[in-house]
Amino acid sequence: MSVADGIDPPLGEETAPARAPFRWSRVLPWGLTALIALFCVVPFLLVIAISFGRKIEGAAWVWDFTFENYQRFFVGTLWPDEVTFLYLQQLGYSFWYAVIASILAVITALPFTLALTRLSRRAQAAWLVFILSSLSLSEVFIVMGWDILLSNNSGLPALFKSTGLTDWLKAVGWFDTLREWGLANPRNVKFKTSEFATILTMSYLVWPYSVILLYPALSRLDPSLSEAARTMGAGNLTVLRTVTLPSVRLPLFGTTLLLFVFLLGTYVAITVFADPSKHTTAVAIYSNVRGANLNAPFGATQAVILLVSASVCLVLGHTLNRWSEAR
């Protein structure tokens, strides 16, 4: 306390409360929050609200609060007389494609990224720039490329035929196996439409992401860990199994989960490469919102369920990870 603190102001002089000057820095966070709410949260809330709306046959839709759309998604419109799982099946395909494609991408990106971290700084930078630039390619462009590559008339099947590879496959008996897998017709191999082509293209779409996501963790991996294992009698595979993979378990898991969530929304690759009977929820959503069905409330319901499913997967993944960490 200073001496001046005890001195009363002279009579007749009143101390006016100091008015704080207006500062933009105080308003800015609130303004940004409002903007985020307006452009991100409001559309999201609208989708949830529309999912409870009702489609008017032969017309548009109206606001409502009905669970009919959710009922339709899980058990079909004819419930309780008849139960159909068409939409759950689509959701299942969404998960199937996304899980396999994300795992495939991570499995193939891991050895590449490991090798990348062992290159010179200059070479690493060149590769990273190349991979980052490949991210600028749109899904449509990539799918078009794969479409040409896998098309029956001008792509790999034509190459198989012209080089005699198809005849060789027939001669060794592997052609029948390919037919059983749906990768050949009686005359030649075929990749469209197939789960193989769908998953391959989806993996390709996210492969650069998996390299970019794995690179920081792998480049931080202390090389002396694997060297220590080698001096203790571990060969290359044992080092990979007992040291490298456990050391990057978290980034591997996180990358797979992220790619999986990203791939749940794949649209173009599915429409081009997947059999219509194996289309996913993302395709069905578009069909309802903008496509042939024009049933926005049901499309919104599918979108909400897809989002909730993805969130449940993330939470489950996180819980599983914490559980294994605790062990």
Partner: peptide, 20 residues
Amino acid sequence: PAHKRKFGMVFQSFALFPHL
């Protein structure tokens, strides 16, 4: 190769496996 030499080595950073 190193894994067949049976030489024990202590590294400068100790290189202990953090997951074990």
